[in-house]
């Protein structure tokens, strides 16, 4: 008879599960970065009410928010190969689908998903900056781009920091869904280890603890950043 709860097994497989961390971080960081880029331009189309583009942004945000992430992941996972095959047929190219690692599909899926949510967050952060700031920037002769990058965005980032941090933590945990597309991230490694010994609970406890610790480290980092950026409120340059 085996043990009811195998502590040695639980500890023993930790190194294997840790191998998933690079995938988890890679997906989260890359998706957050491209999500911010997509979100910034998405927000601009809405703020400046750009014809046509803002409709496209609207449909995009609505679709991503209205469908589960797991469905989006599977659509990308099965959809991109079909698109590539169509492309090959149409233009006579010979792109080999099986040469593309699964994690690349996930980078696309998570970036697109993050972009939609961040469109709304970034839009709200930019609008939260006092309208007088852009007028002041114009009044000294800045172009719209100079005003945006030198005056508005730095303030918007500060306003939005807690929201963006929260979103990033959510994203970190959502990467666990990437295993459904065969990416061996933390959750994937846990499942592999669990399956080998048929000891699921132990493996999932490991996964939970690892996610938790990563999030704690990240929260510390954000607290530090918030403290640093609030120097503007203190009144004197740090």
């Amino acid at each position: 008879m085996g043990k009811i709860f195998d502590v040695d097994f639980m500890i023993g497989i930790i190194p294997n599960i840790l191998k998933g961390i690079p995938y988890t971080l890679l997906i989260a960081v890359v998706a957050f970065f491209f999500g911010c880029v997509i979100g910034f331009f998405g927000a601009l189309t809405k703020i400046y009410k750009v014809p046509v583009l803002r409709r496209i942004t609207g449909v995009y945000v609505s679709f991503i928010r209205g469908t589960p992430l797991i469905v989006q992941i599977l659509l990308i996972y099965y959809g991109i190969p079909i698109l590539i095959r169509m492309f090959n047929e149409r233009f006579g190219t010979n792109i080999n689908i099986s040469n593309i690692p699964a994690v690349d599909f996930m980078l696309v899926a998570f970036s697109l998903s993050a972009g939609a949510y961040l469109t709304e967050s970034i839009r709200a952060s930019i609008l939260a900056v006092n309208k007088g700031q852009i007028e002041a920037a114009y009044s000294v002769g800045m172009t719209t781009r100079q005003a945006m990058f030198r005056i508005i965005l730095p303030q918007a980032v500060k306003v939005g920091l807690p929201v963006f941090a929260n979103f990033f933590i959510g994203l970190l945990k959502d990467t666990s869904l990437a295993f459904s597309a065969a990416v061996p991230e933390i959750m994937g490694q846990a499942k592999i280890q669990a399956g080998r010994a048929s000891r699921f609970f132990e493996a999932y406890i490991d996964a939970a603890l690892i996610y938790w610790i990563i999030c704690i480290i990240f929260e510390r980092l954000v607290a530090y950043l918030e403290k640093r950026s609030s120097r503007m409120e203190g009144g004197v340059q740090a």
Binding site: Q133, E135, A136, S139, P154, Q155
Partner: peptide
């Protein structure tokens, strides 16, 4: 400006 318009950052 009436409300100063200093760059807050």
């Amino acid at each position: 400006f009436q409300t100063f318009g200093l760059f807050e950052n």
